[in-house]
Design a protein around this nucleic acid. Structure first.
Lengths: 223, 223
DNA sequence: TTATTATTTTGAACACGTTCAAATAGAATG
DNA sequence: CATTCTATTTGAACGTGTTCAAAATAATAA
């Protein structure tokens, strides 16, 4: 893992990460080599590996940094909005806006689906990062008055997190001008979600609740 | 790409593929090296690359072979069942059963999400393979009498294909004994699907149709 | 200060996927 | 048959991510 102790070395770490991001932006993640990155940071290759476990780890460090930098704005969004729709629009919109200049780089992050891979968004290694992200969805749900059966509501934050992941994935590979298709997808799915929440309060949808709850329990486990 | 001309070289190709699958099974896809594979096939590394573009291409060849071998059974399933539920259960169930001995290897196939990557299930390079797979879902839908609005029905085969992809992905990384959780997921989602199709015929769900149709058009494009 | 220990830095070396010029075998042609 | 052309096969070499023993530097103890 990354070792941070004295602020002295912290500066080197920062320099390497900054150099990496520059090279990634200029040449793309795949084309960028660790030798280039090290050279750009003015150190030997070994030094890069002293601070970062792997080339991918550099991208992960970028994401951690992003999380730190976005947190205040996400807080603001949470307190400024009150419906779940507004909040989702705000949170996810903010992330897309923040990552826009490094859209391709985010692709390197979402590239690993295997939960066994340390850099997968589903791995135990990334659990802290994921949970921090999840917490925003938990608050977005908790503090808005949603009427949903108890067998489903507890899973909602995780479902919304997954929704976000899917949307980001679509966005990363969306080659339409200005990623306009993602915009449409975002808009229309939010609208459908609002309708679904409304419909869920009507009797005809009741029969879906039980199997839906069971399904979620099967996927995520108890509680 | 792979060059097949005279039946003579076809045998070599087959031998290399067979050797690759053996080595993959014995040592895992990642740990297996092209040098090992070539040695196991009794040829030089270069020969392996003469017949296959890359290490991943070997896995793709395995999938193509699987598609060929499964086709008759899928045909049989289509003609033996008539409800969409039975057909999905049959088709997807058959695939899981077929791939079971090489479950880990399928992981190497589903590892690339990037549609630009030639081996991604979403790439243009794999379009023929994908379309062949899609055709079964098209027939499964067409020949069963489903009552769905015209704005949604055309997308159903693609949605079901995606459902299959998701299920297979879950299965690949399902470490529960005997992949029991996938079994539950499969069962419960099919049941929910049946209910959803039924509910879709009732008036209260109508308001979801229009936005749903628009959403699908936004994702997949016209028609 | 000097000696000792811990941290940081180096760059050659390794393993692997992949490439490619050259060698070989096979087919076609005269 | 010899010759030319094509298909196959070879294995050394390249570029890359990564490792690691050794060197350099900083921190601490004596």
């Amino acid at each position: 893992m990354t070792r941070r102790t004295v602020p002295k070395s912290e500066e080197t770490r920062r320099r390497i990460l900054a150099a990496a991001l520059t090279v990634f932006r200029e040449r793309g993640f795949q084309n960028a080599t660790m030798r280039e990155i090290a050279a750009a940071a003015g150190v030997a290759v070994g030094a890069a590996y002293y601070y970062f476990d792997s080339k991918d780890a550099l991208v992960m460090a970028f994401y951690e940094q992003a999380q730190d930098e976005m947190a205040p704005e996400l807080e603001r969004i949470l307190s400024a909005s009150h419906t779940i729709e507004q909040r989702l629009r705000g949170i996810i919109g903010q992330k897309l806006a923040y990552f826009a200049p490094n859209r391709a780089l985010v692709g390197a992050l979402t590239a690993h689906i295997d939960p066994a891979h340390p850099l997968s968004p589903f791995s135990t290694a990334t659990a802290p990062i994921r949970n921090r992200d999840l917490a925003f969805f938990e608050r977005a749900v908790a503090e808005s008055k949603l009427r949903l059966p108890a067998s489903i509501l507890p899973y909602l934050p995780r479902l919304l997190w997954l929704y976000q992941m899917g949307l980001v994935l679509f966005w990363v590979y969306d080659c339409s001008p200005q990623q306009g298709r993602t915009g449409m997808l975002f808009d229309k799915t939010l609208r459908m979600m609002r309708m679904a929440f409304k419909l869920a309060e009507l009797p005809p949808l009741r029969p879906l609740f039980r199997p839906a709850g069971e399904l979620l329990r099967a996927i995520y486990g108890e509680v």
